[in-house]
Amino acid sequence: MSRMDERLLAERLITYDTASKDGLRAAAGFVKGWLEARDIRVVDGVHQGLPVIMAEVGPTGPGVPRVIFHGHVDVVPAHPGQFEPRVEGDRLYGRGAYDMKGALATMMLALRDVGGQGAVNVRFVCVPDEESDDVDSRSIDALVAGPLGDADFAVTGEPTDLHIGVQAKGVLAVRVEVHGRAAHGSTPWLGDNAILKAHDVFRRIETLPFSRMSSDLFDRPSINLSRIAGGDAFNKVPDSCWVDVDIRYLPNQDPGEILAQIRSIADLEIVRCFNRVPAIVSRSNPYVLALRAAVGRAVEGDALSVGRDGASDAVSFLEHGIPAVEFGPVGGGHHGPEEWVSLSSLQRYRAALGTLVDELPAALREAAQPQPLRVVSYDGGRVAR
């Protein structure tokens, strides 16, 4: 296993501007060709005009564990220079290096690594729209409702610094409209500026009771003012304004209660709302335990179960009853100007994925064995547990 493999493949993927449709198609063509050149079974498809790549190794049939390596090739927009990868020490810089072309490249290599084993069915899926604003029609939802629906476990390569993401916040996207009173721009005191009122509304949302809650894996929810639009003339006091508020709420919070708190603020109207439920998978799931053991051996330390602030396609698997976690390499700066991934962590990431597949059958057999009762003491006597 060569560290250079991960670097070269990740660098190649970064060079594609996959914030654009043409870049997505070119990158998907490269992924497909790379897999086929290594005699891996590939099926390519299209979802709303964008390419979807699926590949498969290992046996099929009843009783065979079915594991998915899931990644996305699309990225958020970036300056042209960010699609020119550069290496500084252990860091590979470039758009998508951390989220998540480094992980995607390593999953491709791990799929090749486990291609010769005969005990686990491993499917690789590369989607083009995880970062898309279109929340109503994602390719992963169609895939899970179809060819991927019989999977037993899914690993999505979102950035986690080699920890295992067993929970992720829910998404509540709210568009709030605020109205004021128009006046001439030279006499603003005669009007009621809707843009200023909208900013005040956002500050009040930040102080609502839901914003101060916490859970075992999260300190608090996040609240982001993501878009604002108002006014229709330079020399006029704006009489209307809307803002988009991106709320990432905790698994123990009720989005209906959050909306009720927002509606309690005077002089606003909620005109649009989208909710994506939190992701939660049991930390005692046998597949999660097997991954944790594999990561522990690959990184030479304990693998932590963590909560993830951002949303991902993992929730699509969970909504269909398929246990899924986020698990990706070490890095930083995703969606920012200096995004990077640790090259040495890509090697450990690849080793962990391979170890998971190699040791999974034995781990599942052990998990299926009945656990013997043990006797424990307490103040009132002894009980079997």
Score class of each variant (00 low, 15 high):
Leu172Glu: 09
Thr156Glu: 02
Trp189Asn: 07
Gly185Leu: 06
Leu196Asp: 15
Asp219His: 09
Glu269Asn: 09
Val174Asn: 03
Leu225Ile: 03
Ala266Glu: 07
Pro251Thr: 12
Ala173Trp: 11
Val171Met: 04
Arg212Phe: 07
Ile205Ala: 10
Ala182Ser: 10
Lys197Met: 10
Arg203Trp: 03
Thr207Pro: 05
Lys169Tyr: 00
Val176Ile: 15
Ile195Arg: 08
Pro278Lys: 00
Ser222Phe: 04
Leu250Ile: 12
Asp244Ala: 13
Cys241Asn: 12
Met213Val: 14
Ala260Tyr: 13
Val176Cys: 07
His184Ala: 01
Val277Asn: 02
Val237Ile: 05
Ile228Val: 14
His179Lys: 10
Glu206Asp: 13
Phe210Gly: 11
Arg276Pro: 02
Ile280Leu: 04
Leu250Thr: 12
Ala260Met: 15
Arg204Asn: 12
Thr156Pro: 02
Lys197Ala: 15
Ala260Glu: 15
Arg175His: 05
Ser226Met: 05
Asn235Val: 06
Ala173Ile: 11
Phe153Lys: 14
Asp239Pro: 04
Val237Gly: 11
Lys197Gly: 10
Lys236Gln: 09
Arg248Pro: 15
Ala279Trp: 00
Pro251Val: 11
Asp216Leu: 05
Arg204Lys: 12
Arg204Asp: 14
His179Pro: 02
Pro238Met: 05
Ala151Cys: 09
Lys236Leu: 13
Tyr249His: 09
Leu172His: 05
Ser211Lys: 10
Asn235Ile: 03
Pro255Asp: 03
